[in-house]
Amino acid sequence: MNGDLSNLRKEYLKSGIDKDELDIDPIKQFSIWFDQAMQAGLIEPSAMSLATADNEIGIRTVLLKFFDEKGFVFFTNYDSKKSIQIEKRQQGAILFPWLALERQVRIIGNIEKITKNESLKYFQSRPRDSQIGAWASKQSSKIDSRDVLVDQFASMKKKFENKDIPLPDFWGGYRLVPNSIEFWQGRENRLHDRIIYERENDGWNTSRLSP
């Protein structure tokens, strides 16, 4: 087995970033890039890597469910490993790897729980089986086999048969409130474009970074 990837190379030629053409609001600029990712037909454009840490570092892929001027929201089990890390250290980073567009967006900030009403509104919009899945899975806990998970799902499905499914008290949303947002565009000869927005008081400072 040869694990040498030193000759695996690709030039990035699709586009560039003109700082003067970017929106002064990074959330609006993110929305522009997200729409372009959607229009390009990327697989799961809302998928983002979420990094958290306490005594150790954790990273996993989650789905962005909505964003606005307040931040970027995802949902999870509040007893999961990621939630435990978030409760100990309310900071994190998310990364959108839109590789087909030769783009990345990196966002760093503080993480906070959203309100129960916000979580309920989203929970009720989920397919019924996804609602049941939230009740069935004790996220991040060890199980002997997949059969255990399937049995738990079947048990919960029977429990809530012909009933509205309530929001679990151990499940809901988090919002990452950005302190910095970086837009990365691959360029030829590894001279990539990197534009970072950094929060200052009630506004944003914008800078170009060396690749």
Rank of each mutant, 00 (worst) to 15 (best):
K81H: 13
L5G: 05
A47R: 12
R194I: 00
I111H: 03
S210F: 13
S80G: 15
L176H: 03
Q36P: 01
L120Y: 05
I17P: 00
N7F: 05
N117T: 15
S180N: 10
A136D: 01
G173C: 06
I57P: 10
L149I: 13
R175D: 02
L101T: 04
D68H: 05
H192N: 06
Q29G: 02
D23V: 03
E21Q: 13
E200N: 07
A53H: 13
F75E: 09
A51R: 09
N77Y: 11
S125I: 06
Q91P: 03
Q29A: 02
I24D: 12
E118H: 05
K113N: 13
D169V: 11
S141N: 11
P168G: 02
T206Y: 00
E161I: 11
D25E: 10
K121N: 10
K19P: 00
P211Q: 12
F72C: 08
F30H: 01
T76D: 08
R194F: 00
D54K: 13
M1I: 12
A154K: 12
R146F: 15
P166N: 08
K70A: 15
L5W: 12
E87Q: 12
K138D: 11
F75R: 07
L176T: 08
I165T: 08
P211C: 15
I165V: 15
Q36K: 11
G172I: 06
F160A: 02
S137G: 10
P26A: 05
K81C: 05
S119G: 08
F30S: 01
A53I: 15
Q36D: 14
A134I: 07
S49C: 09
I27F: 09
A134N: 05
R194W: 00
M48E: 10
I94D: 10
W98E: 03
E44Q: 08
W135L: 06
E198P: 01
R208A: 14
N189C: 01
R199K: 15
E188K: 14
P26K: 00
Y78V: 09
V150H: 13
K157P: 04
Q185P: 08
W98Q: 09
G133D: 11
K121V: 10
K121C: 06
F74Y: 14
L101H: 06
R190Q: 06
K82H: 12
V148P: 01
E56N: 09
E112V: 14
M48P: 14
K113D: 11
M1C: 06
D23K: 11
G41H: 02
K70E: 15
L8K: 13
D18I: 04
V150L: 12
T206R: 01
E198L: 05
L209Q: 14
P178F: 11
S155R: 08
G58C: 11
S6C: 04
G71Q: 03
S145E: 05
S130D: 12
A93R: 10
D169H: 11
E118S: 13
L101M: 14
F30M: 10
W184E: 00
D144W: 07
F75V: 06
